[in-house]
Structure formats: C-alpha cells, structure tokens
C-alpha cells in the first residue's frame, strides 16, 4: 500500500544552509498493518509522516501510494488523495475551534461533496463509535483533551479513509485517556484500516504489529 524507496528530504531554512531531514529512507506498509514509526524528536519522523500523508513532497527518492507515484501529482491531486485515502490524527488534535464536534467530524465529507443527509448520518455513527454522541453540539474548548482527540478520531472514522496517520496521538493526554485513544486505533485497525503511528513512546509503539525505528533521518 505504501512503498518508499531511498527517500531524501532536504530543507533549506535559509540560503546556503541545508538540513537533511530524511536520508535515504526505504520502508513499506502493507494494507491492514499497524506500524509504529519510533524515534526521538528531530529524528525525521514527522517529516516522514508529512510525506506519507501527502502534505509534503520528497527531494529525492520514490514514494508510491497504492501504486501511484506521488511526486508526479499536482497540489489539487494531492488534496484529493488526502481527502480519499488519508486521515490524520495529530498530537494537538487540530480541531477547528469555531466548529462544534459534529461539524468538525463532518468537514472531510463536505470537501468530498457528500450530500447533507448522508453526512449527518455518517457523523452521528462516527460520534457514537467514539462515545461522544451526546457531545455533538459542543465546541472543542468545552471538551477535555481526551474527548477532543476522540472527536479527531470520529473525524477520521467519518472520512472512512483506508490509511490513518497518527502523529503522537497520546502526546497531550494523561495515561488513561491515552490508553483509550490507543485502544480506538487498534479497533480501527481491526476493522481493516491501515494505521501508521508516529511516536517516541516505546510502550505505545510495542502494541503495533511492527516497529520502524528512525534516527537522524535514517531507518535503523
């Protein structure tokens, strides 16, 4: 499903200065897998996730998603791939503060031009799945961190994309809320989603099928 070969990413924060965030990374993720990418901060794991998530493109190397060469796509084609194939779960939740929980979960469906009646139904089911069916009208600020992350998971559920990219999803949560979020990710994986977990937390990473360790932009 995800096939990366000799991937290199070089940033130029200012003229003449170059930072090699990824240095010849090769990895593969098969459909239905739960893979953890583990590394310390600055190891390049977020850069890798951004590229896998089609938010960024590599400097060199190959990235095929479902057999499609991502480096050849335009920005609107990348948007469509994000919309159809990928859901993000971020450390900072990344909910839109002015929208209610239900509206946040609905957003990906709007960009996929799904009719309103169908959207409402899908969102209701997604909120139920994360146990927030009674909190649909609440703004993110009115919810706890764990609840906010569950809204983000509901958003991913509603979007129904085959790949879930979770970047330190428990980083801002206490251990109990974190455990419940991890459990939900596993549940998603059991229903057939491919999950890529990016974390520095070895404990969380060990619950995955497979761990990929990254350090200084290289796979160990």
């Amino acid at each position: 499903m995800i096939r990366i070969k000799e991937l290199t990413k070089i940033y130029s924060p200012s003229a003449g200065q170059q930072v090699k965030a990824l240095d010849g990374v090769s990895m593969e993720v098969r459909e239905g897998e739960f893979v953890a990418i583990v590394g310390a901060s600055g190891s390049g794991k977020t850069t890798l996730m951004n590229i896998i998530g089609c938010l960024d493109t590599q400097t060199d190397g190959e990235y095929f998603l479902d057999g499609e060469d991502i480096s050849q796509l335009s920005s609107s084609q990348l948007s469509r791939i994000r919309s159809e194939k990928i859901s993000f779960i971020f450390q900072g939740f990344n909910l839109i503060p002015t929208l209610t929980a239900a509206e946040n979960a609905e957003l990906p469906l709007i960009y996929r031009r799904i009719p309103a009646a169908k959207r409402r139904e899908t969102v209701m089911r997604a909120l139920e799945a994360v146990g927030l069916e009674k909190r649909g009208d609440h703004l993110p600020a009115e919810l706890s961190g764990g609840q906010q992350q569950r809204v983000a998971i509901a958003r991913a559920l509603a979007a129904d994309a085959p790949i879930i990219l979770a970047d330190e999803p428990c980083g801002n949560l206490d251990s109990r809320a974190g455990a419940s979020v991890m459990e939900m990710l596993h549940e998603l994986n059991r229903t057939g989603k491919t999950v890529v977990l990016i974390t520095h937390d070895n404990g969380a990473a060990l619950t995955a099928h497979r761990q990929v360790r990254i350090s200084d932009g290289r796979i160990m």
């Binding site: 998530g53 938010l55 920005s75 609107s76 948007s79 469509r80 994000r82 919309s83 159809e84 859901s87 993000f88 990344n94 909910l95 839109i96 503060p97 002015t98 957003l107 990906p108 960009y111 996929r112 958003r155 979007a159």
Partner: peptide, 16 residues
C-alpha cells in the same frame, strides 16, 4: 492560518 492548514490536511483543495 492554522484552520486553513487543518482543512487542507483533511482534504480541502486550494479552490475550496
């Protein structure tokens, strides 16, 4: 800005 980033990450196209 952040809101725009979120929207883009969940599939909004430039034209949206």
């Amino acid at each position: 800005t952040r809101e725009i980033g979120i929207k883009k990450s969940i599939g909004a196209e430039n034209k949206d």
